[in-house]
Nucleic acid binder design. Structure first.
Lengths: 212, 212, 212, 212
DNA sequence: TATGAATGAGCCTTCATTCAT
DNA sequence: AATGAATGAAGGCTCATTCAT
């Protein structure tokens, strides 16, 4: 029960976030959201008019969050490239760890109502393209220097996203089957973070990673 | 409109598969499924009694499919290990390409109704564990031979799954932002298949992959 | 499961009897009746056309039974009147004991669809009136003889019916609250039979019943 | 059409009472109840959630009524016993006359869903047992005084209930066959009230009732 | 701003009944 | 005679949304 007497509107939004993220649009009921927010059912419609509208606010907020997360991938410019990739990947991994439902939520809802792709474009397109441009420049420079093997920036980002996102999306299943005996979920996730970085480093480096 | 005059029962099941896979349980309506199958609404209940029941049939079928897909990861025993991994990964990639909704669907529904984890266990547990055991044996042998760098079988499988699955789950998004101009979706997917294999090969090999 | 291979029609009727008697018209489902009869659902409609029709057959049969039960109230003409009343009452009591649902069933269904009163008239009216006439004659004779106190035949019959029928109609409740500790249901019912007779005897006799 | 503008909730309950009492649970339809109450179908579910729930409210209310009616059986303590029985019986008779559907309704629903016996116990058990205890004490005193013939309290109550209840339960039938020509239903019922009292008095008294 | 009450549309399900074979 | 398949009608219920206050 979230209740913020001074700001019911906010309480509703937060309750809606939780609910929509966990259950998706269809399975979320405005009555439940209102209840969770500690607010009358009618109040919810008073502030947000329709469920669709409330959902869009949440969705948009989450898209912003997703956009911001992209920036975590680029770090301080004066740090060596591979090190920056590692730091960036870990930051991205931690971000997903804090928002495990986020990617699944966005992907699902984009699939269910493709109209929402427009919202995605509006929020992300420019950011993503400029980001990719910058990264590609750095990659090209490093490649020319002979520091790393050639790769497309988009390709690299997709590799990273795949490794970082899938883990958390599939956690309920992975949880059940992939965690070694005696290892806590926390330890397992930490281990995966290292592994993901390692995989990307292997992909980029010209010399193989020294064995531990 | 699927219509198979001789087999309405089958038509309903197929319509249900499509609908559930795309929209999930909640957003799928029995009326729509019936309409898509070209069948009276009551007919659906005649054959499958309840929506839940119909869903479970679909879900179970998809779990079986998922189980079968695991086998595509292991190939002929007399082929060199790395080659077999490559072939296996590509087969798995192609399988996901043919069933792009499958992983997202299973993950979503397991998350929304965790009771279904029991169904997953019933179908997959044994297969998965025996598979992992076998792969681990081969890895250990290769590592001892000095042919590859050490890695856990589960870790390896999770790396592969991440790369192969995420692409298709996120395709509606990726589609929009990650395909280079002038490249068709088909070409892009083929490129990704190569990249995914490359990433895993890099992770496993002791010597860096020769630049193309 | 009633199954009488040679006579499915009969099996259906018997299953319908049981079901209708226990649950009434609305709560009885033709599918259940068919299943209980060991017969296809369609078969039931093949033989009896409609649920209503099947019900009427049962209802009519039960009305006949009810009519026949009335005859149990009159016995051998050469036995003394009070003795005959006692024997008749006990026979009636035993009849209800064998058909405990019968009166409740008839009363309910007559109330729910008053049109059925016509069926009642058709079956019972003549019988009842002639019976009452005869009994009244005998009563009058006995009264004149000074053997019993005066009473209307209808009144007497209603007294008897009240005592005998209510017990079984209310048995589920009575069962729970009215049976003395240590007494079996069977003993209780036997006790009630004596009591009912006693009550009527008291009503008829000029001298009080000797205390036991 | 019951309409109480200020209190739709109450209107629904009253319509439900009438409908359930007359037709029982199964044959009563929420749509009909809503219509009778002059209210949208959805409104009924708004206030009472489920048909089952609405039914239970009615059922419970009726059980309370039934319990209260038991108290009408005991009168002023300083009145002679037989007189008090007569007054009590008449009060009980009048109560049933005002609620002719009540006993049949309760008995039917208890039979159809025996789980409801628990509700009965909760409401009635204590009352009934204490009542029976008191009556038995008085009976024993009277018997010792030589004023009445011995009888169990439960037995007596069952005799009374049989006579009073059956008449009204069976009224649709009795109506048709048992009312003497030229007598109104009202007169008939009054006559039955006298008869029922008379029957019980005969059962209790040591000396026969003087002929009228 | 806030809310209890109200509602229409739609969903899942059951069931008596019919029909083709 | 027998039945699996098919269906329309109706029932119970939920839910997003609106309205009067």
């Amino acid at each position: 029960m979230i209740k913020d007497d001074k700001n019911k509107e906010q309480a509703i939004l937060e309750a809606a976030e939780q609910t929509f993220l966990e259950k998706g649009f269809e399975a979320s009921k405005t009555t439940q959201i209102a209840a969770k927010a500690g607010v009358t059912h009618a109040m919810l419609h008073y502030y947000y008019r329709t469920k669709e509208n409330l959902f869009n606010m949440v969705f948009d907020k989450k898209l912003q969050l997703l956009k911001d997360s992209l920036y975590s991938l680029v770090g301080e410019p004066d740090v060596p490239f591979l090190e920056r990739v590692e730091v960036g990947m870990k930051a991205h991994f931690d971000f997903i760890a804090r928002n495990p439902h986020l990617p699944r939520f966005v992907i699902n809802e984009l699939l269910f109502k493709p109209e929402r792709l427009k919202m995605l474009e509006a929020v992300i397109e420019k950011t993503a393209k400029s980001l990719i441009g910058k990264i590609q420049q750095e990659i090209d420079r490093e490649v020319e220097r002979g520091a790393i093997r050639p790769i497309g920036a988009t390709t690299l980002l997709l590799d990273i996203a795949s490794l970082n996102v899938f883990l958390f999306a599939a956690l309920p299943v992975v949880n059940r089957f992939a965690i070694p005996q005696g290892m806590s979920e926390k330890e397992f996730i930490e281990m995966r973070k290292q592994e993901n970085v390692e995989v990307i480093m292997c992909r980029l480096r010209k010399q193989p990673y020294p064995e531990p």
